[in-house]
Design a protein around this nucleic acid. Structure first.
Length: 582
RNA sequence: GCUCCCUUAGCUCAGUGGAUUAGAGCGUCUGUCUUCGGAACAGAAGGUCGUAGGUUCGAAUCCUGCAGGGAGUACCA
């Protein structure tokens, strides 16, 4: 709809002044109209004419075109366009665009390391990634969700030390004493990790053991050892970690990702890096293989292979990117990490683009900020004293239990609260996660919107033909059109729809524009902002207008139905359920 | 030191070239209502958009300096 109108304005400009122009429409304050454009101001300079005169001429042309109830010139030359009611109703037919149809997209997110627990940063990152993937998928992309983490390295050595300590040696059978529950197993592994990490700092003998264990794990991979006691422990606990990831994703109801363990991608990265070294695209410096970032672009130098011959994360990242490219032949890859990796990733992307010219344009790096809690305290990622993802879920769930009558809705509300609380902030900056606010039923929260939805559904349930409360789009549309025309006899002069009805309808028609914007900008928070405004608009309408039993019941029911569907769709895009009752 | 990011109401945040009153939520204060789910609605108070300049018909939004905060800055991830 918006695009169609923009073309109409551009055509009018072409007709009158013979110039091509990108007529961009914005949504002005409601009192000014449904859309506004500043083309006249743009043209003023170009044509050497007074912008107001240009606007006046355009106004004349557009006013006669039939789809506008009014066209006005305001201020220095803004054009405010108000659609006819018929046109506004017709706008309900437009759907969000599918510009990515036929394209292969990879979104890489979550990225937890094996042998460790997911912390709050992972939770935020996972929820953000899940929603972005869903937005892109809705836009038509052939979507591939991936995740990348370490299953080798010093942190694994630390954990293995703790495991052996717990088991009393290389004693794989003793693992049977650990719980069967994936989440509890993860907790057990985490305690082992903390024990190892602590003693690594404090005891030199243990430190040497951990270093040896780390090397042993590399050997297990190199020799494909599945038989030695240590190998049996390693593979089993690694699998526990993977099972735990899946269990947690299931718990928070996000789609599973294809997980690339570092051990699977390192070799490819290493091979590639050595090839690039041979080509002269990387350099040897002080015994290490490094990439010198272009200083004019403020890129720094990073080590890809250490002087000891070990691959760094840079090399492993090269490996994953290539693995994803081979597996999915992506047209675009979106990576989401914490914002401390911004500069690091710029160098890796620049290096990749040097190795494989053009691939840099196919990759986008997004970041999520640090999560703070209500008291403003930041989390430390050292030694395991981080705030765990599971603790956030548990805490919010406890609050939800307190305030909920129907405990069957516990998952819906808990996850709605958590997801919305993370998603409502613009992606990139640090955020404050307020447990109390997240579960609040008033204010800008997930449960508030879920409630707003349930409230509307209950009205629909009271309607005469409540048997099919989720009517097809066409029948809803037809109903509104029909009713406007029928009821219109007396009120035709002021346009069929009453002010409050029109105002709600106008807001509903913004939905597709907001979804498009959120997708193009990769910014899900736009949807949150919009849904909240939509709910407020509905409350205003509902406060002042009776639905059931009113003579305008048919129109209003159709509006309420359309509102509820829109809210539900929007929440669905955010991965939040919309129960019919609460 | 250098590089990048951030600074909008008491708190948490939207708004990132457009206007007529810079918007929300929470908190504070006031009103409405014998409720189609009031978990609502209406209103008030609260901001020289960190600061000083500049560009522009027009700046919270772009540029520069400064202050405060954060991150990164070669063998960690």
């Amino acid at each position: 709809m918006k695009q169609e109108l923009e073309q109409a304005v551009a055509a009018a400009v072409k007709d009158l002044f013979g110039v091509e122009v990108d007529a961009e429409l914005t949504r002005p304050d409601e009192q000014f109209g449904d859309y506004a454009t500043n083309v006249a101001l743009q043209l003023g300079k170009q044509l050497g004419k007074n912008p107001r005169e240009i606007a006046e001429q355009l106004r004349g042309r557009l006013a006669s075109d039939g789809q506008f109830a009014s066209v006005t010139v305001a201020g220095p030359g803004f054009l405010n366009l108000k659609l006819t009611d018929e046109k506004l109703i017709a706008a309900l037919r437009s759907e969000p665009a599918k510009p990515l149809a036929g394209e292969s997209w990879v979104v890489e997110y979550s990225c937890p390391n094996a042998f460790k627990e997911l912390h709050t940063g992972h939770l935020y990152n996972t929820i953000a990634g899940d929603v972005l993937a869903r937005l892109l998928e809705r836009a038509g992309a052939d979507m591939h969700r991936t995740s990348f983490g370490s299953d080798v390295g010093l942190n694994v050595g630390r954990c293995m030390w703790g495991i052996l300590h717990e088991l009393g040696g290389e004693n794989p059978d003793a693992l049977s004493k650990v719980s069967d529950d994936p989440l509890e197993r993860a907790n057990w592994l985490s305690k082992c990790y903390v024990a190892g990490a602590t003693i690594y700092e404090e005891d030199d003998a243990a430190k040497q053991q951990i270093i040896a264990l780390n090397q042993a794990v590399y050997r297990i991979h190199a020799e494909n050892d599945h038989d030695s006691p240590l190998a049996r422990i390693y593979w089993k606990c690694r699998q526990w970690s993977f099972d735990y990831f899946d269990a947690f994703y299931k718990l928070i109801k996000v789609d599973a990702m294809r997980y690339y363990p570092e051990s699977e991608t390192t070799e490819r990265g290493l091979r590639t890096v050595r090839e690039q070294l041979a080509k002269g695209l990387l350099e040897e410096s002080e015994g290490a293989v490094v990439f010198h970032g272009d200083e004019s672009e403020h890129l720094h130098t990073r080590v890809f292979i250490t002087s000891k011959g070990l691959p760094t994360y840079e090399t492993k990242d090269v490996g994953v990117i290539l693995a994803e490219q081979e597996e999915y032949n992506f047209d675009h890859r979106v990576l989401i990490t914490g914002n401390d990796q911004t500069e690091y990733m710029r160098v890796v992307f620049a290096a990749m683009d040097t190795f494989f010219p053009g691939i840099g344009d196919k990759m986008t790096h997004l970041t999520n900020g640090t999560v703070r809690f209500g008291d403003g305290k930041k989390m430390s990622s050292r030694l395991g004293n981080v705030s765990r993802a599971i603790d956030v879920v548990t805490t919010v769930r406890e609050r939800a239990i307190e305030m909920l009558d129907d405990q069957n809705l516990l998952d819906d509300i808990t996850l709605g609260a958590i997801k919305y609380e993370f998603l409502k902030y613009r992606l990139g900056g640090d955020i404050a996660f307020d447990v109390n606010e997240s579960v609040s039923l008033q204010g800008n929260s997930g449960p508030y919107l879920q409630y707003a939805h349930a409230r509307a559904r209950s009205i629909l349930a009271k309607s005469p033909d409540s048997g099919h409360s989720e009517q097809s789009e066409e029948s809803t549309l037809e109903q509104i059109l029909h009713s406007v025309q029928d009821d219109g006899e007396g009120t035709r002069g002021d346009g069929g729809l009453q002010a409050d009805e029109r105002s709600l309808l106008r807001k509903i028609t913004e939905y597709t524009e907001v979804v498009d914007k959120a997708t193009v900008e990769l910014m899900p928070h736009h949807i949150c902002t919009y849904l909240y405004e939509l709910a407020q608009k509905f409350n205003q309408f509902y406060e002042h207008n009776r639905v059931i039993g009113d003579e305008r019941e048919t129109v209003r029911l159709a509006l309420v139905g359309r509102y509820a569907d829109t809210l539900k769709n929007g929440l669905g895009l955010l991965g939040i359920t919309a129960p019919d009752r609460m």
